[in-house]
Each structure stands twice: as C-alpha cells, then as structure tokens.
Design a protein around this nucleic acid. Structure first.
Lengths: 159, 159
DNA sequence: GTCATACTACTCGGATAAGAACTGTCCGAGTGGGGTAGG
DNA sequence: CCTACCCCACTCGGACAGTTCTTATCCGAGTAGTATGAC
C-alpha cells in the first residue's frame, strides 16, 4: 500500500479540524508534517477526483472536504488512493488447467478466489466502519488539545 | 498482491491431492496451469524457505508439503510469498508534526495506524481460518471428480 | 552374479535482466485579489 | 471618493524523471539413478 494513504488520512483529518469554508493549500498541509508538497498534492488530486475533496485554484484557494466528516470513511480514502481493484487478482488459471473451460468465470467459481476475496471483504467492511468523525473523536479523547493546536498552527502558518 | 499468491495456493492444493511421499517438480506443477516454470519455481522456493514445502534435488526430486494439509493455512502461503510485513506502513509522520516527539512510537499510539492495522488483523484472521484441507473439501464438494482427474493428469505427465 | 565406480540426466537454487508501479519533481493554465487610473 | 480595469502573485493540475518492486529468464551446484567393468 502506498505511503500516500497515510498522508491522505492525516491530511483529511486536519481538514476536518478547520472551518469548512476555509480552504487549505497543499503546501500548508504538507508543511504540517514536513512532507514533499508536490507529491502530497498528487494524493490530494486523487482525493478530489474521488469526490472526497473539492479544490479551488488561485489566491485563497486550496482543498476542502467535499462533505461532512461523518460521511467520509477510511475506506473511501484508501480506495481513492489505491484504486478500487482488489489487491488479490484472480487470473482464472483454472481455465488453462485440465478440464478448464474458456467461457467460465472462474473468479466467481474458484474456491481459492472466493476465500481470499472474502477476507478482503471483511477488511473493506472494517475500514468502511470508521469515518473521519470517528477518528476525530478518538484523537480528541486521547489528546484533547490537538484540535486547538492544529488550528493555531495553520493560523500562524498562513501569514 | 503478487500473482504468485494465486499460483502458490493452487499448486499447494495440487500437492495436497497427491501421495505425500511423491515429490512433484516445478516443471510439472507449472505445466498443469501452463505457467512459466522458472517463475513458479521462485514462488515454490519461497514456500520452502517458509517451511511450507520441502524440496529435493536430482532425479525423482521436486516439492512436497512439509506438513499435513490441515496444518497449512492460506495465510501461511500468503505471508510466505508477500512477506510478513503489513501492507500499510505507518511512517509515524506525527513525529514531524507540531508537538511531535522523536522518541515516541506513533505506530502504536496513532489512531489512524490503529484503525488500519485492525482492519489488516481481521483480514489476516480470515485467511488464517482456512486450511488447505478446508479448500480441498470445498473443491471436492463442488467438483467431486477433481482429485482423480488431477492425479491422472500428473500420472500421465510424469512419463 | 555381485559390487564398486564413473557417468549422465535431472532438479533445485540463486544470480541476472526487463517491465511496471511507486515515489518524487517541475512547470504551465487558470483564478482571484489588489493596485491604479479615470470619472 | 467611487468604480472599472489591468496586472500579478498564487494555487491546482497534469506532464516529466528517478527509484524500488514485481515479473520473468537463465545457468550452475548438487543429487540420484544407471550403465559399465572388474572380481
């Protein structure tokens, strides 16, 4: 899995702690964790294409959450960066085995494919069960001062 | 995930259907699904290093299951090919954020890391719940003639 | 006929390349705001 | 003083390299079986 996933979730969380109408630039979001700005920008673009963020160009532009933090799951972010394809690719090798038929869809029928795809399903379900709001609440339980500190940092940095 | 995982599980299943003391060569296992033999050999080497298979060189050599099919899980095979590392790498970017401490282990403390690693845990647990014996039983329920057909094919091919 | 020996074919194992994906960088298109000049 | 226009700095977006991982291939080390010859 790309490191971009980690960056993306952290950045989305930072966006969740700011005023919804105030956009944050890729440069500011990258500086927060000392990340390469141009590359983080690439990840934010992917999030924008996926409809998780909205972007505006020009002065006072940047990225904002496209919807309420409670409506954005960790799975949304992961699939935005990694793509929607399963990690396991069933190439239907049973087709080329003895007694295999070319016209059969072995990715559905193959027991091995079923097993691994079921595992990916529970993985997906687990990630879909956590929203940005859940993450925010969990962080605030652990470090209550994080929201304020984050807002202060961005306020200081913008000038 | 590598395609090698798919090849490895299918090949292990074929080994489970043969006499335990009879070794199968990488060439034969590859020919069964028309796979590139040298590359499949590489995957079988990984399974051998992981202690899932045993290998013997020379004439009448090849690969055999190192233990009973009921004692080999799908997770064993996946980690043998893919490595034991998690797919998600927490690089502890919180360390470089404001208020971050260099000496803290954020991969344990970070809520985001916890969430994604928990998802990987259930994925792992799911794969660990299925053994080669389970797969064999499931296939035989679906296509009862598969074991016989597989054995016949290898018997015909060896000469 | 039996045994020891050398040879040969076979198989794994790791070293070696080609290709793809991830990681990282750079510059151009478009935008909004502010400055400036005219009324 | 107010307004309209123009210029400029700012930001995203996609095009462009460097590096690592996946995919694929090849040849050498070691082994077991077999043929051969001596006893």
């Amino acid at each position: 899995m790309s490191v971009g996933v980690e960056w993306a979730v952290h950045s989305c969380l930072n966006l969740a702690w700011s005023e919804p109408e105030e956009a944050k630039t890729a440069l500011a979001l990258a500086a927060f964790y000392e990340l390469p700005a141009a590359y983080l920008n690439k990840q934010l673009q992917a999030l924008t294409r996926a409809g998780i963020l909205t972007s505006t160009s020009g002065p006072r532009g940047g990225f904002r959450l496209a919807r309420h933090p409670g409506a954005i799951t960790v799975l949304d972010i992961v699939t935005a960066i990694e793509g929607v394809d399963d990690a396991f690719r069933c190439t239907s090798i049973l087709r080329h085995g003895p007694g295999g038929r070319e016209d059969q869809d072995y990715s559905r029928r193959c027991v091995i494919s079923q097993t691994i795809r079921k595992a990916e399903l529970v993985w997906r379900r687990e990630l879909a069960a956590t929203t940005l709001d859940d993450l925010r609440a969990a962080v605030e339980r652990q470090s209550p001062r994080t929201p304020q500190r984050t807002q202060d940092w961005f306020a200081r940095t913008r000038r």
